[in-house]
Structures are given as C-alpha cells and as structure tokens.
C-alpha cells in the first residue's frame, strides 16, 4: 500500500534526552572489537582535545533509530514494520558524541516513495545536546518490501 505523500516534511517532537555513559561507550567499542583508547580512557581522549571519552562514529544510531520509532510506529503513516529493511545510512557530524552528553533527537520524514511496490521512507534525525548545540545528523532509509504475490 502506497504511503501518504502528505507525511513528507512532518517532524516529530524532540525525544527525552539520552544520557551517554562511559560504560555504554566501552561496551559498544568492545562489541565492535575496537581498542582505540579514545573510547575508554578519559586521559587519551583529553590528549586529542576532548573533555571525556568519545563514542565510535556509528554509536549514535541506537539513539536516532529509537527516535525514528515515532515515525515507524505512527499508526497514521501505516508502515508495515515486519517487512522493513535498512536501505541506506548516513551521518554528518559537528563533533563526536561523548560521555556526559544528553542528546535529544528530532525526527523528520524527508521523503516517501513507492518503488516497484516497495515503500521507501527517508528519515532525518537531528541530534542536539542539552545546550542546543548540533552534534550529528543521521539519515536513515527504510524499505518496506512489497508482500509476495500469493
């Protein structure tokens, strides 16, 4: 079922702040097998000029994807999440995410298309810290595959 074009441009309310913890960053870095000390050692992070440990580049996806749930689960939009796959992902950083950040996300529907029976939706997540400084923008393309012919 084609999604309603009138959803293009719709923004959702900012999410409650996600507080980034040192141990969560450590857990993520370990899970991707990355031993860079800038993720785990505050002194190493300071030597690069950061006030605390920073997170690997893709860490923030867990936060923006949860925020995108507002879109995905919007009953008015009617996306069939059981058929959704992740098409593209992009990030543009103003600075790295770091321990102590309290991050809030505003999700916006950038485009809605129907391609070969698949619903394709582009969601932009703007991530700001609690001072209002922009940290990163995440673009997520989700594809809801057309049901197979019976």
């Amino acid at each position: 079922m084609a999604l309603d074009q009138s959803f293009v441009g719709r923004s959702y309310p900012p999410t409650d702040p996600y507080e980034v913890g040192r141990e969560k960053i450590r857990e993520f870095a370990a899970a991707v097998g990355d031993a860079n000390p800038v993720y785990t050692d505050p002194e190493a992070a300071k030597s690069y000029g950061y006030p605390d440990v920073i997170a690997p580049p893709t860490f923030v996806f867990a936060i923006t994807f949860k925020a995108a749930g507002q879109v995905v689960e919007d009953p008015q939009l009617g996306l069939d999440y059981s058929r959704v796959v992740h098409g593209d992902q992009k990030f543009a950083y103003s600075r790295p995410v770091r321990a102590g950040d309290r991050l809030s996300v505003v999700s916006t529907i950038e485009s809605v298309k129907s391609l070969a029976g698949n619903d394709v939706i582009d969601i932009r997540g703007e991530v700001h810290d609690e001072t209002g400084e922009h940290v990163v923008t995440a673009w997520t393309k989700l594809v809801s595959r057309a049901p197979e012919e019976a």
Partner: peptide, 18 residues
C-alpha cells in the same frame, strides 16, 4: 579510516548503502 587517522573525531561524514 579511524585506525588510519587515529582520531575518530576526524570523520565528519560517513554513509553506506546496505
């Protein structure tokens, strides 16, 4: 890329298609 540059904060954009 991050192992090459040392500082992961040097990555200002990153995108992929799955």
């Amino acid at each position: 890329v991050t192992d090459w540059v040392g500082d992961p904060g040097a990555v200002v954009e990153y995108g992929v298609r799955f």
